[in-house]
């Protein structure tokens, strides 16, 4: 008569040990193979996940969201920012004018913009491109972005900085499938970075190559962070969302000039309220030789004007 252990069909000591050893090592291996999940630490919080669309938020909800953003930024960078939700002012429509006779192509505006708007330093995201064009032509096919001469301006060339043109008829807004980008009453086309799904349709639609995509997590050194932030402006973006020039919303809606204008050493950049007949931009559009809106034939009607002296 055999022992119950040897003839029981289900379990004996040996098979139990074997099975449990296999099971243990299998579970350990499963746990180890799931280890990369630990690196997924930036799951959105519940409040962030359930956050409403910008235009649907009540002031109280917005205040809560701003607090949360301040907290998130502090958690990431160790510095407490001041985040505001600045709304467009009544009777204000912003217009930019750029004097092509004066611009020397020094690219100071590019970097002042990066510093002001907390753009990723690595990989580099820049809103302004300074095109170098030969005299006597406005053929953008001949434009060069990457020139690096010892001294500017160079003989025989002129420079044309291009950034978001804040179109009156913006193609980027039309293609957005989730209404994460729209035109405000003061003429600035804004992006809700928390609503953007990163489909990049707007980037494809923009004829000025003004929109930038965060392919990776943006990298900003802590000491370079600009702590004066706006919800629709320069608050830090996350991976997978679009961004672009917003006329420095955190400055201009507080009455200040944009950062690119302040830094321009030759005074080629002009900005102001076109609805005010005494503003600089009104004077320029009235009296100067305003030559182009870039790619006028596209019908986008930019709020960014290029003009010449003489």
């Amino acid at each position: 008569m055999a022992t119950p252990e040897s003839n029981s069909p289900g379990m004996n000591r040996r098979s139990f040990l074997r099975t449990s050893a296999v099971l243990t090592s299998g579970l350990a291996a499963l746990a180890a193979s799931l280890a990369p999940l630990r690196n997924l630490d930036d799951f959105p919080s519940v409040e962030k996940f359930l956050q409403k669309y910008y235009k649907e938020m009540t002031p109280e909800e917005m205040a809560k969201v701003l607090k949360r953003i301040e907290h998130d930024v502090e958690k990431q960078y160790g510095l407490r920012p001041h985040v505001r939700d600045l709304r467009p002012m009544d009777g204000v429509e912003f217009v930019y004018a750029l004097n092509l006779t004066r611009c020397i192509g020094c690219r100071k505006c590019v970097h002042a913009c990066v510093a002001e708007n907390n753009q990723s330093r690595n990989p580099e995201i820049q809103y302004i491109r300074v095109l170098k064009l030969p005299h006597g032509s406005l053929d953008l096919e001949k434009a060069e972005h990457n020139s690096d001469p010892a001294k500017v301006p160079e003989k025989g060339f002129f420079y044309m900085p291009v950034q978001c043109q804040q179109c009156k008829n913006p193609p980027c807004v039309k293609v957005c499938p989730v209404h994460a980008t729209w035109q405000e009453t003061d003429g600035i086309t804004v992006i809700d970075y928390d609503w953007c799904i990163g489909c990049r349709y707007c980037e494809a639609a923009c004829p000025y190559w003004a929109r930038r995509f965060n392919f990776t997590k943006p990298e900003i050194p802590k000491e370079k962070l600009n702590l004066e932030m706006a919800y629709l402006g320069n608050r830090p973006r996350k991976q997978g969302v679009m961004e672009k020039c917003h006329f420095c919303i955190q400055r201009t809606r507080a009455g200040k000039y944009p950062a690119c204008l302040e830094v321009c050493p030759v005074g080629a950049r002009k900005f102001g309220n076109i609805l005010d007949p005494n503003s600089e931009v009104s004077y320029i559009l009235r009296t100067k030789r305003v030559f182009i809106q870039l790619k006028e034939e596209m019908g986008t009607s930019p709020r960014f004007f290029y003009y010449f002296d003489v």
């Binding site: 002012m89 004018a97 004097n99 201009t252 507080a254 009455g255 200040k256 000039y257 204008l261 302040e262 321009c264 050493p265 030759v266 005074g267 002009k270 900005f271 102001g272 309220n273 503003s279 600089e280 004077y283 320029i284 009296t287 100067k288 003009y307 002296d309």
Partner: peptide, 20 residues
């Protein structure tokens, strides 16, 4: 004339006279 009108020269600070 252009400087007085604001088309020539550097400007800074506040575009909105009410703010600064």
């Amino acid at each position: 004339r252009d400087w007085e009108g604001g088309a020539h020269g550097r400007t800074g600070g506040f575009w909105n006279k009410a703010s600064g």
